[in-house]
Design a protein around this nucleic acid. Structure first.
Length: 327
DNA sequence: CGTGTTTGACCTGCGC
DNA sequence: GCGCAGGTCAAACACG
């Protein structure tokens, strides 16, 4: 499986990892721009994530609470866009700090640069991180065009793929608690990776949400989770006091987090290692060039205006400015 | 007994 | 057409 897009996640998943190829093949430019908001992308981002009835306000509040994340200084050269930023701040995750997906910057290859950026905002971030056990940054990869290989060249795809997004989590455990119940239905060895990929499916009947969990080849402490589809039901797991629920109150509702299918903090935070604390935001590859323009548009609903430009700073790391103009 | 995991077999799509 | 790899199925098994 070779990527023709040159879109790799080498720094995270290891050289020419299957995951990188997967990402590259999953979200080619063509499929992205073939998307029509009214047709293939009828749902807002939050909806894609399964957030249908949840207020997204907590997300906004959270962003405001975490200026170190939400107020990334915009790149002076950036093109002003009306698209929301790539990042969302998310509640803490189990045993984890989190991260997610797509950046043009290397993760492991460029730790110094990342750390420099961290130092600039270290003081602010220290405070911010006290407010949050963890921060999430995730990026929806877009809507797949269908087909297991996700190649856009065929017009009549036999299989329709659900919207997917992936994020990375620094965690000891592979399967992160996210408020939903999952049943493992498969595990496969991944080419060029010593770590197998696990396949999970939401146990709720009529809910076809799936997720794949695999560890980064280059950094085994990082778990890459890819969600596919959206939950058609509320989270069956009620956050317990003193565990995930309490953390979530810092910036996002448990329900919203659960609806996202995002892991929530449910374990002691001593292991927490937010990227602001020595761990820079990880990138999953050069997904930026593959960002779905419609998706960017949709995410407008998820991000408050004030943080847009600021988040755009991160966005700049993810999406080339010329891509941002293509809306 | 219900639920979830394991794991080999099978299916599908793509590249050569 | 063939081989490869990702993804899924389903029987067997484990556990509470």
């Amino acid at each position: 499986m070779e990527s023709k897009e040159g879109v790799k996640m080498e720094d995270v998943m290891g050289n020419s990892s299957p995951f990188s190829d997967y990402i590259a093949n999953s979200f080619p430019l063509q499929s992205i721009f073939d998307l029509s908001e009214g047709e293939k992308m009828p749902l807002g981002f939050m909806e894609l994530l399964g957030v249908q009835d949840m207020s997204i306000t907590p997300l906004f509040d959270m962003a405001q609470q975490v200026p170190s994340l939400a107020t990334q200084p915009p790149n002076p050269t950036s093109t002003k866009i009306d698209s929301p930023p790539e990042v969302f701040n998310q509640p803490a995750t189990p045993n984890s700090s989190s991260i997610s997906s797509a950046s043009s910057e290397a993760v492991n290859d460029d730790p110094v640069k990342a750390e420099d950026q961290e130092e600039d905002q270290q003081e602010t971030r220290k405070h911010d991180l006290k407010l949050m056990k963890n921060c999430w940054i995730f990026l929806a990869f877009g809507v797949c065009d269908g087909g297991s290989r996700l190649k856009p060249k065929k017009t009549n795809q036999k299989r329709q793929r659900e919207p997917r997004f992936a994020f990375m989590t620094k965690s000891e455990v592979d399967h992160l608690e996210d408020g939903y119940r999952w049943r493992k239905y498969g595990q496969k060895a991944v080419k060029n990776s010593p770590f197998p990929r696990s396949y999970y499916r939401c146990t709720t009947t009529s809910c076809n949400v799936k997720k794949r969990v695999e560890r980064s080849f280059s950094d085994p402490s990082i778990v890459v989770t890819t969600y596919e589809g959206q939950h058609t039901h509320p989270s069956p797991v009620i956050p317990r006091p003193g565990l995930g629920g309490s953390h979530l109150t810092s910036g996002i509702s448990a329900g919203a987090a659960a609806a996202f299918g995002m892991p929530m903090q449910r374990t002691p935070s001593h292991y927490q290692q937010p990227f602001g604390n020595g761990l820079s935001p990880l990138s999953v590859g050069h997904i930026g060039s593959n960002i779905n323009a419609s998706f960017l548009h949709e995410r407008r609903f998820c991000t408050p205006g004030p943080s847009l430009l600021k988040d755009h700073g991160l966005l700049q790391d993810i999406i080339p400015s010329h891509m941002l103009k293509e809306e």
